[in-house]
Nucleic acid binder design. Sequence first.
RNA 1: CGGGGAGUGGCGCAGCGGUAGCGCACAGCCUUUGGGUGGCUGAGGUCGUGGGUUCAAAUCCCACCUCCCCGACCA
Length: 470
Amino acid sequence: MAKAPVLTPQSEDFPRWYQDVVAKAELADNGPVRGTMVIRPYAWALWEHMQAAVDRRIKAAGAENAYFPLFIPESYLRREAQHVEGFSPELAVVTHAGGKELEEPIVVRPTSETVIGEYMAKWIQSYRDLPLLLNQWANVVRWELRPRVFLRTTEFLWQEGHTAHATAEDASAYALRILHDVYADFMETQLAMPVLRGRKTRRERFAGAVNTLTCEAMMGDGKSLQMGTSHELGQNFAKAFDIVYSDDAGQQQHAWTTSWGASTRMVGGLIMCHGDDAGLRVPPAVAPIQVVVLLIRDEGDARAEAQRIAGALTDRGVRVRLDDRVDTGFGRRAVDWELKGVPVRVEVGPRDLAEGNVTVARRDQPDKATLPLAAVVDHAAAALDEVQAGLFARALAHRESRSADVKTVEEAVEAARTGFARIPYAALGEEGENRLASDAITVRCLQRPDGSVPDADDEPDLVAWVGRSY
RNA sequence: CGGGGAGUGGCGCAGCGGUAGCGCACAGCCUUUGGGUGGCUGAGGUCGUGGGUUCAAAUCCCACCUCCCCGACCA
């Protein structure tokens, strides 16, 4: 031990630590065009597991997957005033193609409300066609001013759900359902990340929405990350794109739409929520490798035992990697798997084996356990659940230790230096929100006193969660 | 766009007028293998770009470009 640290310690420089982890755990590289990224196989595998878990929940909520084009006529964006105002500055626009200047510029989608709205209008005629529940997995492009790998890249991958409903109540209930049953449930049970579920203030709302709901998570440095959002679009897009239907009385009505998205940003959130000075810590539910069986030395029957253990775990449905690269030193390999955050490591070597034992290390705890050979497979499999629960508990405790109840705006500014401040929304208001903005602090979300999601900004006794964010 | 910082082998850096270096990583050999083992050998760089000063520029001067960090924007 006690070599030079592999990573910049978090306490010394958190952003640097983040970049170190991304590089050393072989997660991503910067792309050649500013703000773009190359997702390397390990991070891609992680994303695939996240994607699958989110996709299952989306389907369970009744939405169907479809795919809409990358290119959108520029004129579409202009149809909804707030929307175009919000997105214009960050659009990538194609003006030339096929060797000629285009008659109408084409926008590379920053999000797809507009194209999807256009097609919803074609497909919806009757109240019997509603609700129409669509989702797509896609890449989108936003020319952000300050890119950061995974957190804010020029091109990113996400799912975007788009739905149309007959009534405001139905749309509203569905947006809330997505927030709870798809996003928050996924983040808490799979990513082991506790999230605040709440309502955005007018200032923080999505361009073109009448209401934005959010899941906010606290990172290791006390800053907040918006992990996913669900918007009620009212009839704004329905009016802009003529999404109309005949109700059961034969009257023409505009539909009520929603949209909701979660992106590769979640990978960054997972890194910054769970990571420590030794690297990443991946929750078992989404870990590409859940257990690594590390052959320490290839002597006696060590290799055979390692293979047997790996095989037995695989048979149990555990995602296992056998690391038998004995030409690389043990220490190096142990450090490498810690960097990559593999939840459970089984170390098999002749010394332990002579006594009928192997060693098991959990990534969420510093010490190791020595176990009899016969107990290893059960123990390792059970440890996965313990690590999953342990990471969640630690993240929740961290958030709670860095959240403070305050009464005044100035106290909120102070508390936001290290974490979240909870302040009565009445004590803040839009003026207080502007005051916070001058210190780069924002209202992350509004909640009712019991933690539930408000129906409106002007409900009495709302609590504002205030903090710095990524 | 405002404020800081930096551009030198893949990565991290030193050198700051006199023939391009170090650490890590990489390749080969030996040694080691239970927490980044040690040694020898080797490969790899038009010193961000353009111009200027000088006998001589990575080094000094001018201009430009790019990247990173802090903010405004944001999944």
